[in-house]
Structure formats: C-alpha cells, structure tokens
C-alpha cells in the first residue's frame, strides 16, 4: 500500500496543486498499485507516509503551514525516510529562510539549503524547464527569488519563465524534489508523475497511455513556439 499524504491542503492548496495527489493515485491504481491518499488538514496529526505533497499558498497561510509542520514533527518524518514533492510555497518552506509579507524573513524547515527572498517582480505565466532530458511544462505564479546552497542540485534548467532565478528551477535533494511549477505539474507532465511513483515505490512502471500524453505534447509544442518567438526572458528577475 502506497501512502500519499497531502500536507495542509487548506493552507497550501490555493493553486490547484492538490491535483498532484489525484494524478499520482490514478496512475498508481492503473498499474495495480494500491494507494491511499491522506489529506492532512489543519489540526491533523502528521501521519507516516511514503510520500508527502506540498503545494502553493498565500503568505499568511504559508507562515502558518511552516509553524504547524515544525510543531507536528514533519522534519522527523522526512528524516525517517519519506519522499517529498513540493511546489512553490512548499519549495520555500522546506528551505532555510523565506520572505513573506513585505520583506520580513522567516525561518524555513531547513531540510534543504535554499533561501528565498522577495523578487522585484512577480513571475506569472507559462514556464518550461529541462529535467534530466525531459521538457517539463507548467505555470508559475510567485514572487520568490530562490538561491540554492553549494552542492544543492536544481530540479531543472529554465527554458521559459523564472523558476528560482531565471536560470534554474527548484531542487532535488535526495528524496526531496521541488519545483515552482503549478499546472498541476504532475497532470501536465505524466512522465514526471511516473518517475516520482517509480522513485517512491522502487518499481518500474508499465506504460499507461491516456489523454494526459496528448496534453503534455500540446503544452510542449506551445512552449517551444513561444521560445522560438524570443519570449524566454519574460518574467526574469
């Protein structure tokens, strides 16, 4: 049984990222993998899980989410061996510090050496990155500028949009994967959903064709057209 826990969907669910759990569950079940999706709302105990999902949220809720995760022992759960897939505010919370409400800096969970300051402009729009040979497509909507510590591997190289800093997006630190891409990103990139499932279950997955593959191709094509039209610097810091 694969346990996927959605961290604080009531605080970090503003940008449709709860869809990542829906996608993972459907794709796992299609391969005969039993899966349980557990939403961990405010007040819930942070139960053990194989994979924790974090999404995007607004400033106030983001700070509250950080506090609740500290109180609830989330860091210990992750150190015990769970995988984490985080998006946007989730990406920022797992890092060392992040900025909210003006420019006040707030301590993150410190699981990854990544600091986020407030960028001069908000990055809003389609984004695309290269992730280990695959194009990853999504939509970003954030005001963060994230710097990775020495030796922290980015999740992807930016083709369109800003990601962390206009050059790279997110990070991959052992079992912790993070990106700025909404979409939800696992809905728009079925290969990434499968890669994450393989990583968490340790199994290689049989192909499972669906309309999601058509969606992925259509988004890639659209982004490529934009890129060749010289749109790359849109949303740069």
């Amino acid at each position: 049984m694969l346990r996927v826990a959605v961290i604080l969907p009531d605080l970090l669910g503003t940008y449709g990222d709860g869809g990542n759990a829906t996608v993972l569950a459907a794709r796992a079940r299609a391969r005969g993998i039993e899966v349980e999706v557990v939403p961990l709302a405010i007040g819930a105990v942070i139960a053990p899980a194989d994979l924790y999902l974090l999404g995007g949220g607004e400033d106030g809720p983001q700070r509250l989410a950080r506090d609740l995760l500290v109180e609830g022992g989330f860091v210990e759960r992750v150190r015990d061996g769970a995988h984490v897939f985080a998006v946007c505010a989730g990406l920022q919370i797992l890092g060392t510090t992040f900025s909210i409400e003006g420019d006040a800096s707030y301590p993150g969970l410190g699981l990854v050496e990544a600091t986020t300051t407030r960028a001069r402009a908000r990055a809003v729009g389609d984004m695309a990155t290269m992730v280990s040979g695959h194009m990853m497509v999504g939509f970003e909507n954030h005001g963060g500028f994230t710097s990775l510590g020495t030796g922290v591997e980015p999740f992807g190289q930016v083709l369109v949009g800003r990601g962390n800093d206009g050059h790279v997006d997110g990070y991959r630190a052992g079992r912790i994967w993070a990106t700025y891409a909404h979409g939800p990103v696992l809905a728009q990139n079925p290969w990434l959903a499968d890669q994450l499932l393989s990583e968490v279950t340790g199994e290689s997955l049989a192909p499972w064709a669906s309309v999601a593959d058509r969606l992925y191709l259509e988004r890639c094509e659209r982004v490529s057209t934009r890129r060749s039209a010289g749109d790359r610097t849109a949303g740069r810091h």
Binding site: G19, T22, A26, V211, A212, E218
Partner: peptide
Amino acid sequence: RLDLATRLTYAGIDCAV
C-alpha cells in the same frame, strides 16, 4: 479541452474531446 479531459479522466469520468 485537453487540460479538462485530463482532469476528468483522472476523476474517472468518461468524456469525449
């Protein structure tokens, strides 16, 4: 429509595009 069809497919709802 492909975003929508993907969404509905994951929700277990049959649909045409």
